[in-house]
Structures are given as structure tokens and as C-alpha cells.
Design a protein around this nucleic acid. Structure first.
Length: 189
DNA sequence: GACCGGATGTACT
DNA sequence: GTACATCCGGTCG
């Protein structure tokens, strides 16, 4: 299904998470290919939306295709794309750097493109300059740009990372054998 | 009004 | 592998 279709985000959140693998995401022209995602929804004990709508997670219950950005551990930011079912969203965990690499390196304070440049939700938000100012912004409009893929990527699945509740549910998706994952997929990479 | 703890990253041992 | 930085919404009192 094309990203340009309004129905893309109305699919089950796990399918959206899988479908976003291989898609190019940029912020003001800086970004790359999404290689790792995770799915969350309101029925999921690990999800911010599990306890219902609050001030913090209100964006998760807002329009689909918008960005849910939050601060984690007081230091970092994480980017999600809100899906059609209220309280569901896809966490973007890693991208393969392709565009504006100089800007990413400068924001990250590192000298050359290494595997860790955008590997992890906090790292990719830092590299792309994503912060709370973008919470609620539409992915269909600048500074965001999503570009569809024409090939079908080879997607692998595994348990999610960094959560304590429902940690065993296989709701993490990745591009098989990508060098740019935040962590390997056991049995695949 | 106090306290808790997290969808993390980095530095260091 | 472990320590620790640093924020704020949620929860309970």
C-alpha cells in the first residue's frame, strides 16, 4: 500500500510498523531509510497509551500520520508515527543515514559516519534535530518528508527493546542484515 | 506536594 | 557489564 494513501495508517499498527521499513524519512532534508521500528497500542502494557489518554500522550490519540515526540530519561527524544486506531503508534528506532550526513555528524558531535550515527531512537532524533517542538506535527508536511519504496524489503521480527512490560511480544521490525540497526535481531543478524 | 521511574546513550571498568 | 546523567507526567497522599 502506498504511503500516499490515506488508508496506510489505518492498517493494524503492526502492519504499519512493518510497512515503514525501507521508507525514507527526512527532516528538513536530513535523514535516511527507516531500518527499525516497534509497534505500540492502547491494549499493550508497554505503551504510553495503556492507561488511557493523558496530557503527555494526547498526540497518540490525535490524527493519524502525525508525530508523537516525547522526552525519555530526561535527556533524549523518541519519534513515533501515530496510527489510525486511537492510542496506537510506531516508534522509529533506527535509520540508515543517506541525506544531510554533515548535519547529522555535527548534531551528534562525531567525525565520520559510523554505525551508531542513527542507531537508536534517541540517537536518530538527535541526528535529525527532532525535539518536542515537532510533537503533533504532520508527517505529510515540512519539515517532514516520507518517501515510499518501490521494492519489498526483507523484514525480520523480534522482541522489543528497553521495556519491562510485555517485553516478549514480537513487535519489533527490522531490515534484515542492515548494518544500521540499534541491535541485532537474534537469529537473523 | 513528594516521589517514582522510564520505548536511552555514553563513559568507564 | 555497570554507573550515571537529568526531566516531567502520573500517581498517591
Amino acid at each position: 500500500m502506498s504511503l500516499l494513501s490515506p488508508d496506510f495508517y489505518t492498517q493494524p499498527v503492526d502492519e504499519v510498523a512493518q510497512g515503514l521499513i525501507g521508507v525514507t524519512l527526512t527532516v528538513d532534508g536530513v535523514g535516511g531509510i527507516i531500518v527499525e521500528t516497534e509497534a505500540y497500542d492502547a491494549a499493550d502494557p508497554a505503551s504510553h497509551s495503556f492507561a488511557g489518554r493523558t496530557v503527555r500522550n494526547a498526540t497518540m490519540f490525535g490524527p493519524r500520520g502525525h508525530a508523537y515526540v516525547y522526552r525519555i530519561y530526561g535527556l533524549h527524544h523518541c519519534l513515533n508515527i501515530v496510527c489510525g486506531t486511537p492510542g496506537s503508534a510506531v516508534l522509529i528506532r533506527a535509520i540508515e543515514p543517506r541525506h544531510g550526513i554533515d548535519s547529522m555528524l555535527e548534531r551528534r558531535g562525531i567525525a565520520r559516519p559510523i554505525r551508531e550515527l542513527c542507531a537508536g531512537p534517541g540517537r536518530l532524533c538527535a541526528a535529525l534535530g527532532i525535539n518536542m517542538a515537532l510533537d503533533g506535527a504532520s508527517l505529510d508536511r515540512p519539515p517532514f518528508l516520507l518517501e515510499d519504496v518501490d521494492t519489498v524489503p526483507d523484514v525480520v521480527t523480534g522482541p522489543r527493546i528497553g521495556i519491562t512490560k510485555a517485553a516478549d511480544r514480537p513487535r519489533r521490525f527490522g531490515l534484515r542484515s542492515s548494518l544500521w540497526l540499534s541491535r541485532p535481531f537474534p537469529g537473523f543478524n
